[in-house]
Amino acid sequence: MSFLTSLRPTLSLSPATKTLTKTLLLTRPFSSTPPSHLARMTIVGRLADSPEIVATSSGQDVVRYALGTSHGPKDNRTTSWWKVACFAPEGGLRDMVLGLGKGSLVYVEGDASMNKFTAKDGTAQSALSIVQRNFEILDRRDPRAEGQVEGEGA
């Protein structure tokens, strides 16, 4: 009933304005941003190794790293590996990501897309690409202490 009451002032409007009002009320009232065709992923996992800087063919620096996530009971645990890229990292963010060591626990939000390509042997392949958007460190591991046993002083 309240929906009809809220439309009552529009009854005196022109047909074009009524259509626009109806469209605005029924489409994406929860967001002011345009719809996106990207899938968003959230991953909480541990770094497989220290992040590295790689230059693309156009010369742009990309920070790449892999995350491992585990699920299932301890006696039958399964690990999934996720490759993540961070384009145009600058200043503090770049140093923060590069300063993490293997085993650091991180929270990553990123845009995910499936890319199809032809491998060197001619077979059709596909790969999931994740481009980092948000990043938080949950448990930092020092990359210089990777060879040390936990509990030893540095």
Rank of each mutant, 00 (worst) to 15 (best):
L4T: 10
L7K: 00
P15G: 11
T17L: 09
T19P: 05
T23E: 04
L26V: 14
R28I: 05
S32H: 05
T33Q: 14
P34D: 08
L38D: 14
L38V: 08
A39Q: 14
A39K: 07
M41W: 15
M41D: 11
T42W: 10
T42H: 15
I43R: 00
I43N: 06
G45A: 12
G45K: 15
A48C: 12
A48V: 12
D49T: 14
S50Q: 15
T56Y: 01
S58Y: 13
V62S: 06
Y65T: 09
Y65E: 08
A66N: 08
A66V: 09
D75V: 15
D75W: 10
R77I: 15
R77W: 15
R77G: 13
T79C: 13
S80M: 09
S80H: 11
W81A: 12
W82V: 05
K83Q: 12
V84G: 12
V84D: 06
V84N: 06
A85K: 06
F87D: 02
G91R: 02
G91S: 00
G92D: 08
L93V: 01
L100G: 06
V106E: 01
V106R: 11
V106I: 02
V106K: 00
G110Q: 01
N115A: 13
K116Y: 02
A124V: 10
A127M: 07
A127H: 10
L128A: 04
I130H: 04
Q132D: 11
F135S: 07
L138N: 05
D139A: 11
D139W: 07
R140Q: 09
R140V: 12
P143G: 10
E146I: 15
G147L: 12
V149Y: 05
E150P: 02
G151R: 02
